[in-house]
Design a protein around this nucleic acid. Sequence first.
DNA 1: GTCTGTGAAGCTCTTCACAGCG
DNA 2: CGCTGTGAAGAGCTTCACAGAC
Lengths: 224, 224
Amino acid sequence: MSKKRVKDLESERTGQTRPVSRLTIERLSVYRRTLKELIHEDVKFIHSHQLASLVGVTPAQLRRDLASFGSFGNVVKGYNVQDMDRTLSEIMGTDIPQPVALFGLGDLGRALLSYGGFQERGFSLVAVFEKDPEKIGRVFAGRRCYGLDLLEQVVADRGIRIAILATTSEGLQALVDRAAAAGVRAFLNFVPKLVTTPPQCAVEDIDISSRLEKLSFLSRTQSG
Amino acid sequence: MSKKRVKDLESERTGQTRPVSRLTIERLSVYRRTLKELIHEDVKFIHSHQLASLVGVTPAQLRRDLASFGSFGNVVKGYNVQDMDRTLSEIMGTDIPQPVALFGLGDLGRALLSYGGFQERGFSLVAVFEKDPEKIGRVFAGRRCYGLDLLEQVVADRGIRIAILATTSEGLQALVDRAAAAGVRAFLNFVPKLVTTPPQCAVEDIDISSRLEKLSFLSRTQSG
DNA sequence: GTCTGTGAAGCTCTTCACAGCG
DNA sequence: CGCTGTGAAGAGCTTCACAGAC
């Protein structure tokens, strides 16, 4: 029986292995979202109780999540809002703006282009790609639309490591392979189709219909 | 929160409590997505390891997920694709089209309106609501846009139990409260803000920026 | 032989509960 | 006191591995 606890406490080091849970990471961005609001309201310090209830988790979980990265808190005053936001940004890597590429300019792609929420959270859609020759070369929401032939060049020039996939499912895997080879390390995939990547890449899927189906199920079973 | 131990085997019965894990439910819709493709390709039967590899899970997990609802398989030929799709639809409650309301006609709302993927999976956006008087009464992608004053009436008339939230964050909680009181039982929330509901309602959050932040973190730590 | 369905083990995440501190 | 940070317990999810069916 190996019950090793040798891990942990890899905190702010280069982290080859992943000592911190993905679910924690997911919550960190929710914490940061709330911290941004608190900064806006000029709140300086906050206790785990209060912040937890604002984001909808238990105080214990909030403290546990933060503890994965070391000590944040001050027992008397609580957590320093400004400091915590800064630290979380550094952990997430959004303290400096990250260039992001968008693939696909259908309805969803255009909506994402117009969405202002990325800039606020440290992301910048710097390049847009489309297969449709009609759209190539035109400008959408201030960004020029490239053809896929320029993928490698633009990814390299702009140092793009994150891509949003909003294309049709045809040719998606080939596109991902090319992007990964060109240096993209993370994909936010809106296409309801499984994509595979080399191990150094990460994929997050957002399948809107699947979420609706889940809700359909829950709405019928939750004391219906 | 209740601490229920009501245990298993409530399978296809009325299901008051929730004997089946939420993560399983999430995967069920992914299975169904893939089954739809298989039907399209005229595949009649499939084995767990094949289907599992198509959706990106382990065969054991696929079998375990299905087993939560009883027996699906035929040892020799594998699972009947058509049957399984039908059964999953029934379980999810999408065997008959579900009417869905959309709140908010910003960029994201309009993109969702134009998105064809809902119909395919058994959902129908039957009503659209906006606060902006400019948009009320106009028709968007074939749907007339209502003002919020008609919320209760339209929800009741159309029997709407699922709502998509794509508004701004101001007044969101009040809107949810009204919708819940009017009979809505499930919310797909794209607004990056915590909403609370009565216990008979379900909420699924989709925070696109949070997902990007998670990817930002992963792309740096995954053998960067 | 190959497959499904499933106890049992293993693993991960969450919650409890308390030491330590100001 | 009331708070944070954290071992330890608990709950939940996944994988293993095999019995039973064909």
